[in-house]
Design a protein around this nucleic acid. Structure first.
Lengths: 370, 370
DNA sequence: GACCCGATCTGAATCGTTTCAGATTGCTGA
DNA sequence: TCAGCAATCTGAAACGATTCAGATCGGGTC
């Protein structure tokens, strides 16, 4: 005797109706109902109308996105990967602005963005989210050299674009002229006559190591952006044998860290008259520190940022502008190319020094206060 | 004759290996391979090791997330919905900070966040992204009363939390004391002696209508946040019969718009000595406008913001603080409750006036300039 | 009348998993 | 000796769609 065919479970409970349910109530095939949604030209207007009506009556919401993605082999989702907890990342408006410009670029093709980030808990498996993400491609925004997260992304072997990172593993690359911008910033201060400079750096590596940067540490920078900008600062000072550059590393990219770092810097090196910062957010902290110490900007201390945030206009902050909207557009274009099977050319976008009111020649050393 | 069984396509091309492929190479069942990944206790350590090894050799990356989601009925993704193009939304760091705090709250449960927003093209179907999103729930951040996007979300009948919005349709609610904060801001200026006030408002409705707010328009505010804050401003001025409040509506929440609006305001009402703003971003614009006009802050013009962004410290801006991290945590807790089948209580968080240096008593009317 | 064609509609395979309900095996205790 | 049981492993049914290769049918052409 053949094994009894399992009895179908009759009309299912209050569960969501499926394509099959609406097919059954009309006595048509599921293929036809599917066509009613996806290929209106494949069935008569009349039947299509009846199907859509029946669907409405049943409370059917249209084809399940998940099942559709599985069958079609595309999800319509791009993973944007930050190698840091997201609330840290978004403490910098520049990160958010970039994200906005990326989504703008990919929305036209009906792609959405899934946020993937490192967990807060350092014990937790950082790669889990990346490994379990249902996406058509990745955009990696900020990852240290050799980070597990980055490796997990590359392992997925999906279309991937690396932002501000050394190209590797067959992925596309978009970046800015980090070194050039930094060099311009430091050169600006040197041209004004400053010789004792401080630099507020973003993290050099994923380990938390805030404070003065040792020569040893400076040789092993994991983040490309940080490495390039240090290179720029160094290149500028190299032209002035009498110039000194004191590097400070931030634990987090926040005004609070920038303020603390500046206080430390000026305590250790009171001779410093100009500070270059790797972000406007850090520069905001430097401005606060100056206010705390009763130093006038730019009279007693010159400050330069990096990014040119919208708020930096109101702060009258001299800074290095970068083309955030273009960057997002370039990233979007690159990932779309990859999805289309084409190989996009690497992109490096320009930066530009924006001189505002937070920089001026140093007070001459011997001059009396005020 | 029975129809010939279709011939299996042999070893598939260079396509990605599946669970079945690794099962076949070891001669075990797919169930066992699945268990090797999901239920290590269901098979011997020995076999499990061989399976994982074979998987590695084949280049199998682990169970496909999509198929897994379909079968399990959960995606591990939450949709965060903005009823505006994302690059506009993220022009306000407050939006980004909120998003960061939400992701922080849900990451602990291995949930990720999918960004869903209105398209730039007003012709495009705004609801498409929401209808096609594979998510376990929604968080709606900023939607006008009766917006199609909001309706589309509610139609999906998934766990949903509404942020800064009137509760409706069985969804949870998290908000702040918008009116209270606004009232405190306006009251602060009135207490200082100001009587001619300007107010820089966020959009009143989804149509783009920047400029002075007519009485008619004021009666039909689509955004709850805007409505509540206007109510707060009005409540404060109501106590002073000799006080006037001039409402200006922003087209976008950006410093540029805030600046333009302030210039318009002061041109039309030179008697204004204090400006309350519905965001710090707009307040940044007001500060710039003052600088442009050669007005000193707070000597000639007092300015108050809303949000207390990190950058507002450096700007020395008096503003209304709101507990962004708590808000994200509350939203996260609410959505997790809903996913667990529980009904979270509505949450309303407090706001607080932070007095800094951008507010002072008005220069006495008759006093000579400087 | 035979043939072909376009317009509609259907059957069934497939996407890649998870999981329930056994089957098999070897061992223990009575 | 044999029922009972724990430890392993398997078969096959979902999950909810898309899509390809026909089937059916009425009408136009020669």
């Amino acid at each position: 005797m053949p094994p009894a065919k399992p009895v179908p479970t009759g009309p299912r409970a209050a569960s969501r109706p499926t394509l099959r349910d609406v097919a059954r109530t009309l006595g048509v095939s599921v293929a036809t109902v599917s066509n009613a949604y996806n290929r209106p030209d494949q069935l008569s207007e009349d039947l299509r109308g009846r199907i859509l009506a029946a669907a409405r009556d049943l409370g059917y919401q249209g084809p399940d996105p998940l099942a559709r993605s599985l069958r079609r082999g595309r999800t319509g989702v791009l993973g944007v990967v930050y190698d840091a907890p997201l609330d840290y990342a978004f403490a910098d408006p520049a990160a958010a602005l970039f994200l906005g410009s990326v989504t703008r670029a990919v929305h036209d093709r009906d792609l959405n963005v899934l946020l993937l980030a490192a967990p807060h808990d350092p014990q937790a498996d950082a790669t889990l989210a990346v490994r379990n993400a249902s996406v058509d491609g990745f955009i990696v925004y900020c990852a240290a050299e050799g980070s597990p997260l980055l490796r997990a992304v590359l392992d997925r072997a999906l279309p991937t674009v690396l932002v501000d990172q050394d190209p590797q593993g067959g992925s596309a690359h978009v970046g800015i002229d980090d070194a050039g911008g930094a060099q311009a910033a430091a050169a600006h201060l040197l041209d004004l006559g400053h010789r004792q400079l401080g630099a507020l750096c973003l993290e050099l590596a994923g380990d938390r190591h805030p404070g003065p940067v040792s020569a040893a540490r400076e040789t092993q920078v994991a983040y490309r952006t940080t490495a390039q900008r240090i290179r720029g600062y160094r290149a500028a000072t190299a032209g002035h044998p009498d110039a000194a550059l004191h590097l400070m590393e931030a634990g987090q990219n926040t005004p609070a860290d920038g303020e603390a770092l500046t206080l430390d810097l000026l305590r250790a090196h009171p001779e410093v008259t100009g500070v270059v910062c790797m972000s406007d957010v850090l520069a905001q902290g430097a401005l606060r520190a100056a206010a705390t110490l009763g130093l006038r900007v730019p009279g007693d201390l010159s400050v330069i940022g990096y990014d040119d945030l919208p708020s930096s206009g109101a702060l009258n902050l001299t800074t290095v502008w970068q083309p955030t909207p273009d960057k997002g557009a370039a990233v979007g274009a690159a990932i779309l190319d990859l999805l289309d099977g084409q190989e996009p050319a690497p992109v490096t976008l320009p930066t530009r020094l924006v001189v505002r009111g937070s920089t001026a020649p140093p007070r001459s050393p011997a001059a009396p206060t005020a």
